[in-house]
Design a protein around this nucleic acid. Structure first.
Lengths: 233, 233
DNA sequence: GTATTATTAGAGTATATACTCTAGGGAGTC
DNA sequence: GACTCCCTAGAGTATATACTCTAATAATAC
């Protein structure tokens, strides 16, 4: 693998594990056993590294949120969207943590992230629209749909921060993908009142599968992971 | 005013304006025209300053979220809760921005914040319960109520971050309290499906007052501010 | 092979940051 | 006046951080 790609990969890994604020360019170089000079040969500065990681993140989510316009959406599609978005969030989880600071210092990123958010909001709204067309949820006026979409976005992007801050025990929290995906439970909670009777039971059953286990239930739940695998096909 | 209090006040002001990460203890001292030694005479370190500010924040929100148990809740109560919580969020807005990092470095704060969150979630849930008792919203099972409360919490605490990151124009954003309170629109959106017919129109009218103005509508809307003042009485 | 370009090492640097240490002033008390 | 206690100044420091510079090596082109 090219040094440049190794830098991106290691940076992402370290940022995710310990937070962008706690990782310096020297840390990244040390972790790869290369010199700082080498790192700065490939990237002008730390912001550039972060920006390139963002571009990857953006590409991934855009790919996940591609909406087929030639057929109606199914419940499986919806599940796929939810699973995928949380997968993406997991892979680039450092990003939302220090978002405001990152955007403060990089106007390219600020602009791109703004556009990205708006694309995501549009996609969510379009998904609701198509779910209504498919008879899964009741159709709603445009105004309500976009306000709903925004709430979905807020829940999705901030579920992780909630887990890390509010579920924190004595020690700092180490999060798992399984826990993160319990955010799907919260998103489906938002949809409940809008479900059409024909699909209500099925969605409620789906939601039930993501219900958080209460007190420190088995951290790695085999059955759960198996199901996740199944859903994603 | 005592130097100690001045330090807390200036810190809060600077943190809110420029972010905790961008403000050093030396900045705070310089801003007050006191020596660093003086600052460190009053506080052992930066974390202690932040912790004390958190205690104030906690106290304020706990005070706002006090729920009268001797009478039913009214629509005015609900409005007051919403307005107050966003006021609190505004006054201590630096806090949620760097929350994860702050908690990482201070286990006292981590523990206290966790308890604080849970108190808030309970309060929100209790408010829903009492709104149902008052016939404003339809009663819901406990499980749904607490999942809903969590969604309300997520929307409330992250609305500001959304504004700052997604609504950002070319330049970094300067937020106003008025914009922040448009979060109330989002919260009320969550409640819509649960409103009882008798109150539906009134709540929808209330919600309408917080609707975001689309393209850069007059930043300081006199009528709006007047209404806010009225509501808070 | 030689010339050129791409890559790397590693020492070094300017600045910042959180914090320390010593010395002393001012106010009250005896 | 001397003692004490609270408060303050301000110089100083160890460490970290983002980044630079020079020189050397590896890869590629001709």
């Amino acid at each position: 693998m090219k040094t440049r790609d190794k830098i991106l990969l290691s940076s992402l890994e370290l940022f995710n594990e310990r937070g962008e604020r706690n990782i310096t360019t020297n840390h990244i170089a040390a972790h790869l056993a290369i010199s700082p000079g080498n790192l700065y040969y490939h990237f002008r500065n730390k912001s550039d590294i972060i920006y390139e990681i963002f571009l990857e993140y953006e590409k991934l989510v855009d790919y996940y949120l591609d909406i087929p316009e030639d057929r109606p959406l199914t419940l499986e599609d919806m599940t796929f969207y939810l699973e995928s978005v949380f997968d993406g969030l997991w892979s680039y989880r450092f990003f939302h943590r220090d978002l405001e600071y990152l955007l403060d210092g990089d106007s390219r990123l600020r602009q791109d992230y703004r556009d990205f958010t708006n694309r995501c909001l549009d996609a969510i709204s379009r998904i609701f629209e198509k779910l209504a067309e498919a008879g899964i949820i009741e159709p709603q006026p445009e105004e309500l749909r976009s306000a709903m979409s925004l709430n979905v976005w807020l829940v999705i992007t901030n579920w992780m921060a909630f887990l890390k801050t509010a579920h924190a025990g004595e020690a700092a929290v180490t999060l798992t993908l399984t826990e993160l995906k319990q955010g799907i439970y919260q998103v489906l909670t938002l949809e409940i009142p809008y479900l059409s009777p024909a699909y209500r039971d099925r969605v409620m059953a789906l939601r039930e599968k993501y219900r958080p286990h209460l007190p420190d239930a088995a951290a790695s739940d085999g059955a759960f992971d198996a199901r996740v695998g199944l859903i994603k096909k």
